[in-house]
Write a protein that binds this DNA or RNA. Structure first.
Lengths: 337, 337
DNA sequence: ACACCCCGTCGAAACGATTCGACAATCCCG
DNA sequence: CGGGATTGTCGAATCGTTTCGACGGGGTGT
């Protein structure tokens, strides 16, 4: 293994000088810098991560806490992870994977062992047992998602309230008066995942403001549940002309169920979804949708964490504005042509 | 921060003794052991990862190289990752996430910086630029998937040849004589992902042995491509009664396309898929399928790596046998009832 | 021309563990 | 009861960086 002293010897300088060239923490003459950099390249030197971490008390690793087996839509998680990993590399950091199941002990382990410099926590619940711990941990952290009580934490997410508002607003402007939100499975609401509730709040708020008739229903992602939900909705609300679906796996099932019940899309029923563009584009009828900007969220999360690592304060709350993309599944409300 | 000397002082022993209690590398009297363990617990001591790595030249971290944005089916990847992370924790190791894009440099970086003890590489191509490097790297590695030339490497995967054989065998025993394999998009074959080719080989081999008429076609996961593929297949092979689908996103689209073309499932067409059980169970007609045992593969991969880390030799090749689960989508070939 | 300051570099002391050789104390057996 | 093996513990060296204080040399200001 080639070490810093080897580089130093070859460049005719002391080890500390090599270190300073690498870190830029002291000024180095151009000539020395060139010689050192050449030696580094020629020897293929890379600092020993452990030694560096020990001496500098910085590991250059971030922990990413991921829900690896939950009912949440998986591809989006993956996109988060990819974005975080890529962004982290851009800041010369690596990413350590931590599973949700490790829970609070996992976080404490990270802190005590100095294995990572900071934490990015995904899938935060409204009432999340980890938030008190995160507030007191000596490790900086950024949460993707919002707990009910976010004071003292750094959180970032898509603005789901605005997303709900935007979806129902789109329907309202198309003249729809009776709408429904079909959300995540009941268990997601029960365990209090923030985004589900906030979408519902935005949806209901704007619907009320426009004087629309609105309903919110959870939905399991099974064909049977989708049919049942659709049938029940049509029975209880014969005037229904628009739905918002915030449940990725259930989206195709629900569209199928409504069509089976005699509703043509978009002639009889307009559909707006909260889902990745890819899914929306490839549906039988391309779906008007709001995508979760996972790449941007991940990247911004890393940026926030890096800023905190540099001792600079960051805003507690970062909300990304939703962008609604109109597609074939929504049209003006009126007698079918 | 509490360090080993603190623990030692409180327990009335020397730091080295504490270290030996922790590692078990020397025998310690029961009494001392108890005292040391108590001190550790009371002070909440955890070894400093960097210091430990420096002194022992073991970081207790594994790198997992993941394809984060490819055309491969995502949930399965995620399942691998989860299984690897969990298994690694079981061996007191953590998992560092490395993206495919880092490529060979990423691997070299891991080796040079001593950031990890070993590598688990997913999504290996038949002709993979990383395999020569992996052979020479001083870091032990395990590949999930097989390159064309696997000598000198440790590889594990589902036995896709046997999987193809098993699928077509199932159809054969039901009396089908004219069958097709619908696989991954062309790009996957082109870039030479091993599993796609091996499934096809197993499929074709057994079909020939049974004297069946067989076809292999790639398929893009879009509605249009699915329809085109189905129509073309039915035109070219009017006697077709069985298909094997090895393309998760395309599975529902293909089933829909065949039904639209007038084929009832399973009365007119039997369908076998290679996909997760969850997907197979939730299809309109539950699909007879072979699942990729991602959990087992991930766990075994970690086990293999740990064994190598302990300096023990392991088999170069580990193939997991496929298990076919019959469901409603396959039935005996014959005149429709 | 003198004092002063800044720039570039060096040497040495951390950082917090692991591990090796040494050393008592205990044990067993003749 | 003594000698050799065994067991349990300790002290000191070591791992490869970073970082702090010091120091010489050249420039600047007066």
């Amino acid at each position: 293994m080639v070490k810093i002293t080897d580089v130093a010897r070859r460049a005719g300088v002391s080890p500390s000088t090599v270190s300073y060239v690498l870190s830029g923490k002291r000024s180095i003459s151009a000539a020395t810098q060139r010689r050192v950099e050449a030696s580094i390249r020629e020897l293929g030197y890379r600092p020993h991560a452990g030694a560096r971490a020990l001496a500098s008390s910085r590991s250059n690793v971030l922990a990413l806490v991921m829900p690896l087996r939950s009912g949440i839509h998986v591809p989006v998680q993956m996109q988060f992870a990819g974005a975080v990993a890529t962004a982290a590399r851009g800041h010369d950091h690596d990413v350590l994977l931590l599973t949700q199941e490790e829970g609070e002990d996992g976080l404490r382990r990270m802190a005590d062992s100095a294995l990572v410099d900071g934490l990015i926590v995904m899938d935060v619940q409204l009432s999340d047992a980890r938030t008190p711990l995160l507030r007191t941990l000596p490790l900086p952290s950024v949460l993707i998602g919002f707990p009910a009580e976010a004071g003292g934490l750094t959180c970032i997410d898509l603005d789901f309230t605005a997303t709900g508002e935007s979806c129902v607003g789109h329907l309202a402007h198309l003249g729809h008066r009776c709408v429904a939100l079909l959300g995540s499975p009941p268990e997601v609401y029960v365990r209090g995942t923030g985004f589900a509730r906030r979408t519902a709040a935005g949806f209901t708020g704007v619907a009320r403001r426009y004087g629309m008739t609105s309903t919110v229903l959870p939905c399991e992602p099974s064909r049977a549940a989708a049919r049942q939900t659709a049938d029940r909705l049509l029975r209880d609300h014969p005037g229904l002309t628009g739905i918002v679906v915030h449940n990725e796996p259930a989206l195709p099932l629900l569209m199928e169920a409504f069509q089976r019940a005699g509703m043509r899309i978009p002639q009889d029923l307009s559909v707006v979804a909260v889902c990745p563009d890819e899914l929306a584009e490839n549906a039988a009828v391309p779906v008007t949708s709001v995508a979760i900007p996972a790449d941007e969220v991940g990247e911004r999360a890393v940026e926030l964490l890096m800023t905190k690592l540099n001792g600079v304060a960051v805003p507690e709350t970062t909300l990304l504005s939703p962008r609604l993309t109109p597609r074939a599944s929504t049209t003006v409300c009126g007698p079918a042509s």
